[in-house]
Amino acid sequence: MNIGIVDFLVASALLFAIGFFGVLLRRNTLVVYMCLELMLNAVNLALVAFSRFNGTMDGNIFVFFIITVAAAEVAVGLAIIVTLFRRRETVQLPDLNLLRH
């Protein structure tokens, strides 16, 4: 029972860093999307930890909203990826350079 808020914040920070690496390093649009979800979840974890240790419900309510927005975002993003694939026959980010320069 010795776990404090700092431990949860460190767990959340490293999880966020892992997701950030995925977004920067991976080239597959779908995997980049999954890593975005990981980053959102890291933020959720930090919010729930703050809520728990401050004795308020506000962080939990925010997580509720974040989950809603993330679900909507995934639906729209995946629809965009499917439309892109239909036009360009690829989901690799280096090939999707239509807007470059």
């Binding site: 949860f8 979840n41 974890l45 729930v48 809520s51 728990r52 939990n60 509720f64 993330a70």
Partner: peptide, 19 residues
Amino acid sequence: GLFVLLSAFFLAVLQVLVY
């Protein structure tokens, strides 16, 4: 699981269901 440790049971269930 971490949510459960933080006593946010409802959010844990929501997490598994939605994500």
